[in-house]
Amino acid sequence: VPIEFLSVGGDDFGTSLLDTTTFLDGVATPPSVMTTSYADNEADFGISMATKICNGYMALGSRGISVMFASGDGGVRGGHDSLSVCDDNTFMPVFPGTCPFVTAVGSTQGFGPEKAINFTGGGFSNFFPAPSYQTAAVASFLKTIPSDFAGTFNKSGRAYPDASVQGWNFEIVSGGEVGLVGGTSASSPTFAAIIALINDRLVAARKPVLGFLNPFIYSTASTAFTDITIGHNSGFVCPASSVAFDAAVGWDALTGFGTPIFSELLAAAMA
């Protein structure tokens, strides 16, 4: 599967995202998958700019592009947490993961059992309402939250992430040197690669590519994941004692439906 890297000039993240959607919406032969390993606090965009960008991703989905974003590395406390926010129980959602037209990807770690990593971004949008495709799954998760839960969040907002992939001790090569990294920035391109491989099989079978993924993930493919039921997304810096969401059976605001099982995800796509 060929890979292309897209670079957009300028220092304003929101404008760069908007420019990217405009460019990809205009190319004659668009890619079937796009992934971005960066995000920022939703509030920093403002609802007007966030809506413009999100509508751009809706347009890309209509062209058959599966759009994925890292869900953030600050747990419930934004793109990146810090010690100054550990006692703040007003959760901070991360955009573009909160856009209902993108697939937000969180992080897990370990095996036997696989767990949600502490920094995996997840929560509920303050800008975008919950889309119909996730209503039932999110309602089940909300029932697991205790009535005396101290966290403040928008229960009716678009919930994220949608899925997760391993995101710790990722081996990379940079400048000819081998090293280990971690973050949802590693998880999102890995999930994108899985979707690209599935699209390749679909094209070979003369079937359409998956395009906008979330309705597929929340219905036909919802059982094609390893359910992650252990974890607490307090953040990379904030201690585990900080208020945050806990992983649960089924969809949760740490790992979505969990980590993909390739054979089962492929079977669901080919059905």
Rank of each mutant, 00 (worst) to 15 (best):
F191T: 06
K52W: 14
A271W: 02
F124C: 07
F216K: 09
F91M: 05
G183Y: 12
N233I: 00
S222P: 04
S16D: 06
F212V: 01
G61S: 12
L202W: 06
G56V: 13
S222H: 14
T220P: 04
F191W: 04
T144D: 09
S140N: 15
A244V: 00
Y160D: 00
F262G: 09
A139L: 07
G75H: 01
D12E: 13
V1S: 14
S219P: 06
S241G: 11
S107W: 07
M270Y: 05
E264M: 05
V138T: 07
T103Q: 11
G74E: 04
F262W: 08
E42S: 10
G256A: 09
F216E: 05
L265M: 08
A204G: 05
F245R: 02
V243I: 10
P100I: 13
G176C: 10
G179I: 03
E177D: 13
T184S: 08
T190M: 12
A136V: 11
P239T: 03
F225N: 09
A224H: 02
S241Y: 00
L213C: 07
G97T: 05
F91I: 00
S263F: 08
G176W: 10
I230E: 06
F95R: 02
P161Y: 01
T98F: 05
P131N: 11
S107R: 05
K207V: 07
M270F: 09
S48R: 14
E177H: 06
L83R: 14
F127T: 15
I195T: 11
T21M: 05
S185M: 06
V203W: 07
S7R: 13
G74I: 08
T255M: 01
P93D: 08
Q134A: 15
N55E: 13
L18H: 13
G258E: 04
V203M: 13
T36C: 14
Y160T: 07
I198K: 05
T22H: 06
G56M: 12
G167H: 03
N199E: 02
F13K: 15
